[in-house]
Write a protein that binds this DNA or RNA. Structure first.
Lengths: 195, 195, 195, 195
DNA sequence: TATGAATGAGTATTCATTCAT
DNA sequence: GATGAATGAATACTCATTCAT
């Protein structure tokens, strides 16, 4: 029998998984805390031992989802090996866009709110925030970004990623102003020019 | 006594105004349909003659707000007279950002969803969609955009505006990753380079 | 152009038809007066010029339906020509049961409340109530009913018809206690014996 | 402090009792779920832990009422001791009719829908359904019913009881076509002949 | 007669949250 | 820690009915 702390983690996990499934299936508002609890096979009261309310579990979820997608996107970019900085970022953007196009339900949940993990203590932080650092690593050795601070690079990528996610939502969910395929060349040109 | 149709328009107007005020004051969820109706001085049932539910009136509202802000932004850009294309767009972006910084409550309502009026029939539409057309006009006679289609210009501006709004929300409301003032140089550099 | 009285009848008719359709489709409670009016292509206020409320139109409708079915049932019995009294009544019952089995929606609307047109002034009424009189006619010349008053005959048939309708509802709608086919022999035996 | 399950039964009971009283007093439609809950001294939400809606509690109620009346009617018949089958059934019918005449409010609630408890597993069921079985018992040893199956006897009685209840509703509530006293001889003659 | 915009009382239903066990 | 029965506040929405035109 596992120790108590592990059992708690298992339950927290089960709640998060249940919420993820239900939020995707029916959306946030049509999912009640009771639904989440019963799908996770715990009592309704137990939910409150782990999360203060529905928003809290949503936030936890959005963080996870964002992190997961962005990590996969980084890995895809890293797999390219030694290529120019812009190509790396384009790979990240492309992975992201394709992911969101494929997983429409996720896009519907996340909406325009994909978020980077908080990057407090960016420069000289003892404990490196892996995701952010991996992205900044892309710029290392590229002449065109040499003059910029890490912060600037990070902000620039943040803005461009925001743009991509926002346009995914517009094009894929709201079908405006066009398909994501027709929007892509514009987005990629913007990215390429602005790096 | 005014014509019936006019009276209906007045009532619709009153409902929209009431909803706008209340959504800004207390937020969407803390505003009930009853609140909206009574602030508009109509019966609760009357609300449903004009809007099917709270979301419907929100959508109508978002359209209006977006249009108003973007029109003001265009006017600000037009006031610059004969300047390069990029400067025009920067003026639009700056107006937008300053507006949202000032009107935090509006930003909180709109979130990342500022939207262009639908641009159906962009090229060669009989009846010009003023807002979109005004923006495209900015590009006329500028050598750097001569080769591009109207559609491409419109999409490019759409994406850049989306980026600005999205970053306003992150920086001003979520206070992440930095202040909007620190983010501005990055955004403006991206805009300038990508035009 | 028809005269005013005729036009009013046409509208009344249209309302009854609309109500009939809607009551069958969605049931009484799920049909609003607004629904009836709009299906009849008249304004909501117009409904009240013809019927005082939903119950009033339902009652008018139930009367019509009952009358129509019972008249058809009588005709079916009359078509048998010279046969014993019991056979006539059995024919009525059988027509009725088969009709209700076929038109489940009608049965669902009428429930157990099929009703004879009111038989006020049964004996020696100036203006013969056709339906009731036709039924009583069945007994003329049959030795087994010679000794009974018209009233008694009418009441007896009323009770037996009630029984049949009630059992149709139980068997067909509530599926209790058995199918109507299995119930029929019992019902017909009761009818035959009690005449 | 009583066991949890017992407390739940008590609450269910209280809700049924409250609904019974209120439905009789004001009728079904004029009774709100809030009324039922507050008369039962529970919160409105608690109602929904026990019944899905007003119809559900009505159905539960009709079952109970039917059972109670029919059981009393059976007891009245059993009290006659050794008498012919038809006399037993007449006693049941008479008890029923007198009950409904006396308790007009109950009749108004039940309308024509008095129902036997479901008789699944009629022949050879391990666990005897007391009410149905008691009625069938009446036929034992009576030469005139010896040849019939239990099912047939049960169906016959069901049909006759339906007839009586339906005519009670017509005569007592709708006052049509005559008083129940004038209808009784016809009903009893039908019953006597058909057994 | 006919209309249909306006009314607003009336009610079902949901659900986050608590707390005794 | 875990449960799930109980709560009751909170609200959306319907619809019969009226009445000015």
């Amino acid at each position: 029998m596992a120790n108590v702390q592990e059992k708690k983690q298992v339950k927290r996990q089960a709640l998060l998984d249940a919420a993820y499934d239900l939020f995707l299936e029916r959306g946030m508002t049509k999912t009640s805390i009771g639904d989440i609890a019963s799908r996770a096979n715990v009592a309704k009261g137990t939910f409150y031992l782990y999360f203060s309310d529905k928003d809290a579990i949503l936030r936890a979820l959005l963080g996870r989802i964002s992190q997961k997608i962005l990590e996969e996107a980084c890995s895809a970019a890293e797999a390219l090996g030694e290529v120019p900085f812009a190509d790396k970022i384009l790979a990240v953007a492309d992975y992201l866009i394709e992911y969101l196009r494929r997983e429409t339900l996720v896009l519907r949940l996340v909406q325009r709110n994909l978020e980077w993990p908080s990057a407090t203590g960016l420069e000289g932080a003892d404990e490196p925030l892996h995701l952010v650092r991996r992205v900044i690593e892309f710029g290392k050795g590229c002449p065109e970004v040499e003059g910029r601070s890490e912060k600037e690079i990070y902000y620039r990528i943040t803005a461009l990623v925001s743009m991509c996610v926002s346009m995914c939502y517009s094009c894929i969910i709201e079908k405006r102003p066009d398909t994501i395929d027709n929007m892509k060349p514009v987005l990629y040109d913007i990215i390429r020019r602005s790096l």
